[in-house]
C-alpha cells in the first residue's frame, strides 16, 4: 500500500507503524470519565468492513502521526491527513 503523506508525498506503507482506529485520539477525560468509559475507549472497537479512519505513525520518515481513511475491504486509501490537523479541528491545541 502507498500512503500519500500530506508533506512528503507518496510513501510505502512499510515505513509506517500501524496503531489502529483513529478514535484512540479522543481519550476520555481522566478526571471525569468512569472506568466503563475508559474500558470502552481502550478495548472496544467499531472494526468496520468498509471505510476506516486509522492512525499510522511515520517511524522511518518524519515521525508524524497520520489519520488515514482506508477501505478495509479493498485496501484503497481515500484520504490522508496529519493527525495534528485533525486534533486542531477538534479544538485541541496539538
Amino acid at each position: 500500500m502507498i500512503i500519500n503523506h500530506p508533506i512528503l508525498g507518496p510513501r510505502d506503507s512499510q515505513e509506517f507503524v500501524y496503531l489502529g482506529d483513529a478514535s484512540l485520539m479522543t481519550r476520555p477525560d481522566g478526571m471525569t470519565a468512569g472506568i466503563e468509559e475508559f474500558h470502552d475507549w481502550l478495548y472496544n472497537r467499531d472494526n468496520p468492513a468498509g471505510l476506516h479512519r486509522e492512525l499510522w505513525y511515520h517511524e522511518q520518515g518524519d515521525r508524524s502521526w497520520l489519520v488515514v481513511t482506508r477501505n478495509t475491504v479493498t485496501h484503497e486509501i481515500t484520504s490522508v491527513e496529519l493527525a495534528r490537523d485533525v486534533a486542531r479541528k477538534m479544538g485541541r491545541s496539538k
Binding site: G20, N47, P48
Partner: peptide
C-alpha cells in the same frame, strides 16, 4: 473474522479488530 459485523446486529462493540 466477521464477529464485529454480526454482533453489531445486537448493538455490541467487541474488543477486537479484523
Amino acid at each position: 473474522g466477521s464477529s464485529s459485523r454480526v454482533m453489531a446486529h445486537a448493538g455490541m462493540r467487541l474488543p477486537m479488530e479484523s
